[in-house]
Design a binder for these strands. Structure first.
Lengths: 185, 185
DNA sequence: ATAAACTTTCAGTAATTTCTGAAACTTCAG
DNA sequence: CTGAAGTTTCAGAAATTACTGAAAGTTTAT
C-alpha cells in the first residue's frame, strides 16, 4: 500500500486540517487515505502507510466509525477487517456537519435552556438572561434549519445551493407562492 | 466586576466550548463575559473576573479582535481601553462562521486546486484526483453559498430559515418562477 | 522630557492532548 | 480446546498548546 506523491500530499494536508475539523491529525490522515484509496484497506496497511502505531490506528478507526465516516467491509475468505468510506463525498460532508452540530451546538442549547429557567436576581442578570435567550433562539434556528436542509436530500440541496443569489428573489415571491407560510416571524 | 452565578455558569460553559468553536478556553470566557455584560469592560476587570493573567487577557482580546467579535470602546476622559461586542448576536454568529470558513475551508481549497493541476501518473492517482475534484467542487459550493447567504442580510436569512421545509416545495415551483435559473447542474 | 498608567510581548512553565507499544482480549480454523 | 491471526485497551511518554509574569513598549498629561 505505498502512497503516490499526490495521495501523500493530500493525506498530509488532511492531517494538518484534521484538528480544525474536529478530529486529530492521525484521524484526518486515516480518513483521507480511506477516501482516496479505491480499494478497501486494512488497519495494518494504514499503520504502515502512515507510520503510526497499530494502537493509534485502531483508536482512529474507532473514532471515524463513531462519526459514521468509514465503515467495515468484510472480504469473503479474509480474516482481517477492511475499511471503506461510509458513503459518497456528499454523505461524508453531511455527516461531518451533523456530528459537529451535536458536539458544538447541542450541549450549549442544553445549558442555555437550564439557565433560562432561573429567575434573574438582579437587573444585570435579567439583561444577561435576555442575551442568553437570543443566543438560544439563534442556535435553535440553526439546528432546525440544518435538519431540514438535510431532509431535502443531496439533489435538492444542490439545486438550492446552485440557485445562489436567486434565493433572494425567490423569497420576495414566496408570499404569492406559499400562502399561509408567511405568518412566521 | 463581580460575576453573578448565572453569568459565571454561562462564562464557564463558553470557556469549555471555546475549543470546539475554534478558540481556546480563556478566549471563550472573555467573549462570553463581554457579550453578557451590558457595560463596556476593561482588560483589567476581565483579568480579575476570570482569574487569568493580564498577559493572557491581552492575547485573548487580540484574538477576539482578529475574529472581529469584540471591539474597543473609548470612554471619554478614561485612559484605559474598554471592550464591547462587535455587534448583535446575529452579527457575531456570522463572523464566527466566516472566520471558521477562512480557517477550515480556504486552505484546503487552495491545496486541492494545486493538486488538480498535476497530471496523474497512474490509474490509482487518476482515481484519487477524481475524488479530490469532487471534494473541491463541494467545498466551492459551500463557500459560494455561504457568501450568498450572508449577502441576504439577517432579515431575509431569518425568513429563509423560518421557512423551513417550505423550501422543498418552493424549489419544485422555482422553474415556473425564475426561468433561466434552472439551467444549472 | 519625564513619569504615570496602562498594554503587549515572550521565554519559560504548566496543562492538555495525542501517540506508542506491550499486554489483554477476540475470533476462528483445525 | 488450542493456538494463530488479528484487534483493542490503556498506562506512560512525547508532542502540542495554553498560561504566567516580568520586562519592554506605548501613550498621554504635565
Amino acid at each position: 500500500m505505498k502512497m503516490t506523491p499526490l495521495i501523500t500530499s493530500a493525506v498530509m494536508h488532511f492531517g494538518e486540517m484534521g484538528s480544525r475539523w474536529g478530529f486529530n491529525r492521525t484521524v484526518g490522515q486515516i480518513l483521507a487515505l480511506i477516501v482516496l484509496n479505491e480499494e478497501p484497506i486494512t488497519a495494518q496497511e494504514i499503520s504502515d502507510a502512515l507510520n503510526i502505531s497499530r494502537g493509534n490506528t485502531s483508536m482512529g478507526l474507532k473514532e471515524l466509525q463513531s462519526w459514521r465516516l468509514v465503515k467495515q467491509h468484510l472480504v469473503p475468505g479474509e480474516r482481517k477487517d477492511f475499511f471503506i468510506p461510509a458513503g459518497d463525498i456528499w454523505t461524508l460532508a453531511n455527516r461531518v456537519f451533523e456530528e459537529r452540530r451535536k458536539r458544538e451546538i447541542d450541549p450549549t442549547m442544553s445549558l442555555l435552556r437550564d439557565l433560562l429557567l432561573d429567575t434573574p436576581a438582579t437587573d444585570k442578570e435579567a439583561n444577561a438572561q435576555h442575551k442568553l435567550n437570543e443566543i438560544h433562539d439563534l442556535l435553535e434556528s440553526i439546528t432546525v434549519w440544518s435538519e431540514e436542509l438535510q431532509n431535502l436530500g443531496p439533489e435538492k440541496l444542490n439545486t438550492l445551493m446552485k440557485l445562489g443569489s436567486g434565493v433572494g428573489r425567490m423569497l420576495e415571491l414566496k408570499d404569492k407562492l406559499l400562502p399561509g407560510k408567511n405568518s412566521v416571524n
